[in-house]
Design a protein around this nucleic acid. Sequence first.
DNA 1: AATTTACTTGGCGAAACAGCCAAGTAAAGA
DNA 2: TCTTTACTTGGCTGTTTCGCCAAGTAAATT
Lengths: 103, 103
Amino acid sequence: MPARSQDRTDRRVAVIKALAHPSRLIIAEALQAGEQCVCDLRELVGSDLSTVSKHLTVMREAGLLEMEKRGQNVYYRLRCPCLLSFFECVDSLAPVRRTNGKK
Amino acid sequence: MPARSQDRTDRRVAVIKALAHPSRLIIAEALQAGEQCVCDLRELVGSDLSTVSKHLTVMREAGLLEMEKRGQNVYYRLRCPCLLSFFECVDSLAPVRRTNGKK
DNA sequence: AATTTACTTGGCGAAACAGCCAAGTAAAGA
DNA sequence: TCTTTACTTGGCTGTTTCGCCAAGTAAATT
């Protein structure tokens, strides 16, 4: 594979990985309605604050999120307006259709 | 989180995870042009046949792919026509924009 | 200046994932 | 029927990811 398209693949994978975890997906979905601070997101996903913070770092470094400190809070928001249509597509896939073979 | 929406989240995560690996992403991209048999995909990604087969199982169980045996080959094809627009969205994100803070 | 609040970072053990080899299977061909 | 082809599955080791606790930081408040 040429170096160029490998770069592109790696970047795509980083973004997709940043969504490929229940807590991070929930965060992404929540942020579609607008920015939230870390403590709100912590409450939403219900894990330790440090865990949430690390998830947010993953998402930010993938390019999915922006952060901004205002007052004593840090606010995160989506940089990608197009998640919704993808999720609709994902939801349209039947749970697990067995195409061939039994078992 | 209510059981219902957890199911939905889990299903979404399964689909996203099925794309969150370089080889699997390359496979998904290749299948946008039409079905391919396992041995062609093996050549494309360059790993062991057993490895490719396992990747395909992950993608199929997530609902992304259909399989069909014809002659002596097994053909896989996408069940999801919407990947392209998602990839365009993913590519629109700048590599890693540092929004705030130095370091 | 000391304390509190709202995070981020380091570190570590547990769990999940990846990829190879070897073995199993099922259909096609000799 | 025996062999070959095209996979799939089992098993194992190495790597990555996850989530907690503890410690660090920086801005706001007292």
